[in-house]
């Protein structure tokens, strides 16, 4: 095979993507790089479905097709884009339901419960409506690292967790709070752009290997999660932070979807 036409399968229909392709390089995050004999280049998010070598045809499958029926997840977003709260500042969190940090108000929340956990003791928090968005107000008297999680029961059980930093210099490690499925930062400190960040997935307190962790960020324009990571034997996965805004990690195991919002710091 010298060169081939590359087609993409979209909802059962093949569309010609590029003619006379002489170079195809699969990359990370399901990216496929293509170059044709005319020097044109293209990168698509897809996987190779079939290669008909005799007919000079390569057929790709669109990955974004998967996101047409995504599993809804819940997540928490802090009311600051500053990475942390200052002492005396009112700490508010918004609770959203949707996918890839894109909320869908039509999905509705099914009587969720919010909790803050300190030294293994969970304290329930009030969730109230604020102009159509669920909000949790933790008040202005917090200090240090505070873990907050939300639990929504149902056929699909959903958890959302975040770590709030109030004040400065709280570079401590964090322990898990004991959710059935939990994403926890490996070594909490200020997470900044241009640095690697590692998380660990725990199932009933034990590391969950080979789990797919989706990662996105609040500034994304992509319809689907821009990153898909796989946990190692210790349940850990690492990402290089390249975008502005807070990051969201999401993992699913059976009927449980659990998210973790990383407040990125300056």
């Amino acid at each position: 095979m010298c060169e081939a036409n590359v087609y993409i399968n979209r909802s059962g229909h093949e569309e010609l993507l590029m003619e006379k392709v002489d170079r195809i390089i699969p990359g990370e995050d399901n990216n496929i790089f293509m170059e044709n004999i005319f020097g044109e280049r293209r990168v698509v998010q897809a996987r190779i479905r079939e290669m008909e070598l005799v007919h000079h045809r390569v057929i790709l499958e669109e990955i974004s097709a998967e996101i047409k029926t995504p599993h809804a997840e819940i997540w928490l977003e802090p009311s600051t884009d500053h990475g942390h709260f200052h002492e005396g500042e009112e700490v508010k969190l918004k609770l959203y339901k949707g996918y890839n940090m894109s909320s869908d108000a039509e999905l509705g929340l099914n009587n969720p419960g919010a909790y803050t956990v300190s030294e293994g003791v969970a304290k329930e928090l009030d969730i109230h409506d604020h102009h159509g968005t669920a909000e949790i107000n933790l008040g202005p008297e917090l200090d240090g690292l505070i873990q907050v999680y939300v639990h929504e029961q149902g056929e699909q059980e959903r958890y959302a967790k975040t770590v709030i930093e109030v004040g400065h210099h709280h570079h401590h490690g964090l322990t898990s709070i004991g959710l059935p499925l939990e994403i926890t930062p490996c070594d909490y400190s200020h997470a900044r752009m241009g640095e690697s960040y590692e998380i660990q997935v725990l199932k009933e307190g034990n590391p969950l290997p080979n789990a797919e962790v989706r990662a996105t960020y609040s500034s994304t324009n992509s319809r689907d999660y821009p990153h898909r990571l796989t946990t190692n034997e210790e349940g850990r996965a690492k990402i290089f932070l390249t975008a502005r805004g807070n990051y969201l990690f999401s993992v699913q195991d059976g009927s449980i979807i659990s998210t973790f919002t990383l407040m990125k710091s300056f």
Partner: peptide, 18 residues
Amino acid sequence: DEISEKEQLIGVLFEKIM
């Protein structure tokens, strides 16, 4: 699609450069 592609590329290039 191109917006998503460009965003992906910036992430990849960011990591390469830094």
